[in-house]
C-alpha cells in the first residue's frame, strides 16, 4: 500500500472526525463559562472555568426541575422501549414461525406502518387523547410509543433465521405451552434482535419531540428535550437560562454519546439483518 494513499485516507478521516467533534468540544468548553464570558471570551479556549457552579445551578434551578426531566425521560424511554420490544418480539415471532390466514396482510400493514411519518399521527392522537381526558398525562406520551412497526419487522426477520422449528417442536412434545416456549426459549434466542429493537426504541422515544410537545402542557411531565427547549426559548427574558441550557445540554448529551460508542455494535448487527435481507 502506497504511503501517500494512507496519508490521504487518514487525513480525510481526520477532517470528518473534526466536523463531528467540534460542536461537542465547544459544548464542553462553553459549559464551564459564566454567562458574561460566553459572549466575552473566545469560544475555543477555557476562560475562568466554573463548571461545578454552573452544574449546581442546572440541578437546583426551579426546585430541581431538571432532575425531574431526567427522571421523566428515563421513564418514557425505559418503560416504553421495554414494553414495545416485548410486543414487537411476540408479533414478529408469530409472523415468522406460524402459518395462518391473514399473515401477509398483517406483515404488509407493518411495512406500511414503517413508512408513516410519526408526526402525522401526533396531531390526531392529541385530539383523541384530549377527548378521553388523557392528554397532559404520562400515558399520552407512553402509550403511542409502544407501537414499533420497525421492531416487528426486525424481530420477524431475525426469528425467521435464528429460531429453528425443531426446537419449538421439541418444546411442544415436552408438553410446554406456547407462551412458555416463547418466554423461556424463543426470547433468549432472539436476544440480539431484542437488544437492537430496544435501543432503536429507546433512542426513538428519547428523540421524540413532536409528541410530548403536542401532548404535554405541565412542565413537570416534560422530558429533557422539551425542558431544555423551554429554557432555550425563554432565555431572552431570563439571561441566566442561556447558561443553564448549555449546562443541561452537556449533562444530557455526554452519557448518551458514551453509550453510543459502547453500543454501536448492536446497531451494526441488527441492521445487517434488516438491510441485507430486506
Amino acid at each position: 500500500m502506497k504511503t501517500t494513499t494512507k496519508i490521504t485516507v487518514t487525513a480525510l478521516l481526520c477532517v470528518a472526525a473534526l466536523y463531528f467533534l467540534i460542536p461537542v468540544y465547544w459544548l464542553v468548553i462553553a459549559a464551564t463559562k459564566s454567562t458574561g464570558d460566553l459572549y466575552g471570551s473566545s469560544g475555543w479556549w477555557l476562560f475562568n472555568p466554573q463548571l461545578f457552579e454552573n452544574l449546581k445551578q442546572v440541578f437546583t434551578y426551579n426546585d430541581g426541575i431538571f432532575l425531574r426531566w431526567i427522571g421523566n425521560t428515563l421513564l418514557y424511554a425505559g418503560v416504553g422501549a421495554t414494553l414495545s420490544t416485548w410486543v414487537a418480539a411476540a408479533c414478529g415471532y408469530a409472523l415468522a414461525k406460524f402459518r395462518f390466514r391473514g399473515r401477509e396482510t398483517v406483515f404488509n400493514l407493518v411495512l406500511g406502518g414503517v413508512l408513516v411519518p410519526f408526526t402525522a399521527l401526533a396531531l390526531p392522537l392529541y385530539l383523541l387523547f384530549s377527548q378521553l381526558g388523557l392528554s397532559n398525562t404520562v400515558f399520552a406520551v407512553l402509550l403511542p410509543c409502544l407501537v414499533s412497526p420497525f421492531g416487528v419487522y426486525l424481530c420477524r426477520i431475525y426469528a425467521d433465521a435464528a429460531v429453528p422449528d425443531e426446537l419449538l417442536e421439541a418444546g411442544r412434545l415436552d408438553g410446554a405451552g406456547e407462551a412458555r416456549i416463547f418466554h423461556t426459549v424463543v426470547l433468549r434466542m432472539m436476544a440480539p434482535a431484542l437488544v437492537t429493537t430496544f435501543l432503536f426504541e429507546f433512542v426513538g422515544i428519547w428523540n421524540n419531540y413532536f409528541l410530548p410537545l403536542v401532548m404535554l402542557s405541565d412542565t413537570k411531565l416534560y422530558p429533557l428535550t422539551l425542558g431544555l427547549s423551554l429554557w432555550q426559548s425563554t432565555a431572552d427574558r431570563e439571561p441566566v437560562l442561556t447558561q443553564l441550557t448549555i449546562g443541561g445540554a452537556l449533562v444530557s448529551v455526554v452519557p448518551l454519546m458514551i453509550a453510543m460508542v459502547f453500543l454501536q455494535r448492536f446497531w451494526r448487527g441488527g441492521l445487517t439483518e434488516g438491510s441485507v435481507k430486506g
Binding site: F20, L21, V203, W206, L224, T225, L226, V253, L256, M260
Partner: peptide
C-alpha cells in the same frame, strides 16, 4: 462519526 446519532434533534 456515530456519536451525534445519540443526540436528539432538539438538543
Amino acid at each position: 462519526y456515530f456519536l451525534p446519532y445519540g443526540i436528539p434533534g432538539v438538543l
